[in-house]
Computed example of a mutant assay.
Amino acid sequence: MEHRVVSLRLPVLAQDVLLALFITVMQVQGTIVRNAGEVIQRRSPTSENWDMSC
Score class of each variant (00 low, 15 high):
residue 42 R to S: 08
residue 12 V to F: 06
residue 50 W to A: 04
residue 24 T to G: 00
residue 1 M to P: 04
residue 49 N to L: 07
residue 54 C to N: 14
residue 27 Q to L: 15
residue 39 V to G: 02
residue 15 Q to D: 03
residue 12 V to A: 10
residue 44 S to P: 01
residue 51 D to Q: 03
residue 12 V to D: 09
residue 14 A to N: 04
residue 22 F to N: 00
residue 12 V to W: 05
residue 46 T to V: 10
residue 37 G to L: 06
residue 51 D to H: 04
residue 9 R to I: 02
residue 3 H to R: 14
residue 37 G to P: 01
residue 52 M to S: 14
residue 27 Q to N: 12
residue 28 V to D: 13
residue 37 G to I: 07
residue 45 P to C: 03
residue 44 S to L: 09
residue 28 V to R: 05
residue 20 A to Y: 01
residue 44 S to D: 09
residue 31 T to F: 15
residue 46 T to A: 04
residue 38 E to I: 12
residue 20 A to R: 00
residue 54 C to V: 14
residue 52 M to I: 13
residue 28 V to E: 14
residue 26 M to F: 15
residue 41 Q to H: 10
residue 25 V to Y: 03
residue 40 I to D: 02
residue 30 G to C: 11
residue 23 I to D: 00
residue 3 H to D: 12
residue 4 R to Q: 12
residue 35 N to I: 09
residue 39 V to K: 11
residue 33 V to N: 14
residue 16 D to Y: 03
residue 8 L to I: 09
residue 6 V to E: 08
residue 10 L to G: 02
residue 37 G to T: 00
residue 27 Q to C: 15
residue 15 Q to F: 00
residue 33 V to D: 13
residue 50 W to F: 13
residue 41 Q to Y: 08
residue 12 V to P: 00
residue 30 G to A: 12
residue 23 I to S: 01
residue 42 R to N: 05
residue 27 Q to F: 14
residue 32 I to L: 15
residue 43 R to D: 05
residue 24 T to R: 02
residue 7 S to A: 08
residue 31 T to K: 09
residue 25 V to I: 15
residue 25 V to G: 00
residue 25 V to R: 04
residue 31 T to D: 13
residue 18 L to D: 06
residue 7 S to D: 12
residue 25 V to F: 09
residue 27 Q to P: 03
residue 1 M to L: 13
residue 17 V to M: 04
residue 37 G to A: 09
residue 11 P to T: 08
residue 44 S to F: 00
residue 28 V to S: 13
residue 1 M to C: 12
residue 48 E to A: 11
residue 45 P to Y: 00
residue 2 E to T: 09
residue 25 V to K: 05
residue 40 I to G: 01
residue 4 R to M: 10
